[in-house]
Amino acid sequence: MSMFSIFNVSSSAISAQSQRLNTVASNLANVEAVAGPDGQAYKARQVVFQTAPMGPDSSAGVRVSAIQESQVPGRRVHDPNHPSADAEGYVSHSNVNAVEEMVNMISASRSYQNNVEVMNTAKTLLLKTLQMGQ
């Protein structure tokens, strides 16, 4: 693997983690969402990563292969006075777990930071190598 492919691998990971952070933000924004006009509540989304080839030197990076909706059933709260209540008086809420989403956010943020640090270290090493040749 060449030194330059490190930048490709890290940048692919940064891009993937950025998408993960955006998905987590969307999930957190909908924690308290109730069923919409179609009767369906918001479903939490999860990012699925996949290994991706990054060039002729057989290095591998990462890419987002899919964003899947969670199949966990949402909360149902008995509130017959709510405008979105069904015939039985239940209101369907999203299936987003705020604690899990915060853990996902911290994990994605740290992965993002680690890949930025990898790129900065590789840049520093390349600059030092150039300085040695002077």
Rank of each mutant, 00 (worst) to 15 (best):
residue 79 D to L: 14
residue 66 A to W: 05
residue 31 V to M: 10
residue 13 A to T: 06
residue 35 A to L: 05
residue 123 K to F: 08
residue 73 P to W: 09
residue 104 N to I: 08
residue 24 V to T: 13
residue 117 E to N: 13
residue 78 H to C: 03
residue 60 A to S: 07
residue 44 A to C: 03
residue 66 A to F: 00
residue 115 N to C: 01
residue 106 I to F: 15
residue 92 S to N: 08
residue 82 H to N: 13
residue 9 V to F: 01
residue 42 Y to F: 13
residue 20 R to I: 02
residue 106 I to E: 12
residue 63 R to V: 04
residue 46 Q to S: 13
residue 68 Q to G: 03
residue 96 V to G: 09
residue 5 S to I: 02
residue 111 S to T: 07
residue 10 S to Y: 08
residue 25 A to F: 06
residue 5 S to P: 04
residue 127 L to V: 07
residue 91 V to S: 14
residue 93 H to Y: 15
residue 55 G to H: 03
residue 108 A to N: 09
residue 34 V to I: 11
residue 8 N to F: 00
residue 83 P to R: 13
residue 80 P to H: 11
residue 50 Q to L: 06
residue 54 M to A: 04
residue 64 V to L: 07
residue 109 S to Y: 12
residue 118 V to E: 08
residue 90 Y to F: 15
residue 73 P to Q: 13
residue 128 K to A: 10
residue 131 Q to F: 00
residue 57 D to Y: 00
residue 111 S to W: 02
residue 70 S to L: 06
residue 23 T to W: 07
residue 34 V to T: 15
residue 9 V to H: 00
residue 27 N to G: 08
residue 39 G to P: 00
residue 49 F to M: 08
residue 63 R to I: 02
residue 129 T to L: 09
residue 114 N to T: 04
residue 75 R to D: 09
residue 131 Q to R: 12
residue 26 S to N: 15
residue 4 F to H: 06
residue 37 P to Y: 10
